[in-house]
């Protein structure tokens, strides 16, 4: 029978993503917290300049997996990773890797905006300074550029010396993204970046992600299914440490292959 399967109809943007260079590659990744196995044999590749969403119920391992990409889990005592994660073809769990350098390449934005109790300017400049950059002109340029990139410049240009804590929640989160961008990473990891924000601030961040993917690769963990559908090119569904399905977002939300995925995205899980 000659029929068009929905997944066979590939749009132009989907084709473009498939043709892009692989920037993140996970090979048979297992993660343990002591005796508890949080991730089970995950294999996945992420193309550059794309937005990838990780979805799944709480405790499924999506945030653990995200935090593997910049070795944020290293701070957890019983954390143990087996397998390989490559960023730009470099094995990031190789013992000679400089973790600080890795985190310059792979920035992170958290669920709750976490500006430092410093001025707006100092917040954005902070990353550059701790990486040893002293050129004031360069720092100023980067601060302005980063604030413009997150569409915050017009709102704060006259208040750069004011405390970042005086900003609204949405502005603080965009400031934190600007702080991440200032050190020019290749990848930005976002762990539920809008879950603490109102719909307007959420819309601004989502719009921002659309613009940012021209320059950066974005991986986002979200519990908001519609957000994943709106903003991402690819979606990975995790359940109890397994990667159940990883496909184009359009396919995941119109015709997922796995019953578990369908049950989860349609709200019939369990």
């Amino acid at each position: 029978m000659q029929v068009l399967e929905k997944q066979q109809i590939m749009t132009g943007s989907q084709k473009l993503i498939e043709e892009k260079k692989t920037i993140i590659e996970a090979r048979d990744v297992n993660v343990f917290y002591g005796h508890f196995q949080a991730l089970k044999g995950i294999n996945l590749t992420i193309k550059e300049n794309s937005v990838t969403a990780f979805i799944g119920p709480s405790g499924c391992g999506k945030s653990t997996f995200l935090r593997c990409f910049n070795r944020m889990n290293d701070y957890i005592d019983e954390f143990c990773l087996d397998g390989e994660i490559l960023i730009d073809n470099n094995k990031i769990y190789w013992n000679k890797i400089v973790v600080e350098e890795l985190r310059k390449e792979v920035g992170m934005v958290f669920q709750k905006p976490n500006p430092f109790p410093k001025t707006i300017f100092e917040n954005v400049a902070y990353g550059l300074k701790i990486h040893g950059i002293k050129d004031k002109t360069y720092i100023e340029e980067q601060v302005v550029k980063s604030l413009k990139d997150v569409a915050l410049w017009d709102e704060v240009k006259d208040d750069l010396k004011k405390s970042a804590l005086a900003l609204s929640g949405g502005q603080q989160q965009r400031l934190c993204i600007a702080r991440t961008l200032a050190v020019e990473p290749k990848i930005i990891l976002m762990d539920e970046p809008t879950s603490a924000l109102d719909p307007i601030s959420t819309a601004k961040i989502e719009e921002l992600l659309f613009d940012l993917k021209q320059k950066y690769t974005i991986v986002i963990v979200t519990h908001n299914m519609q957000q994943a559908a709106r903003i991402s090119d690819k979606t990975a569904f995790f359940y109890m440490g397994d990667l159940i399905e990883y496909d184009d977002t359009k396919t995941i939300f119109t015709n997922p292959k796995q019953e578990k995925t369908q049950n989860y995205i349609t709200g019939r899980f369990g």
Binding site: Q226, F253, T254, P256, T266
Partner: peptide, 9 residues
């Protein structure tokens, strides 16, 4: 309700 997948179809 923004249905998806089989519900949307």
């Amino acid at each position: 309700y923004t249905p998806v997948a089989v519900d949307l179809r």
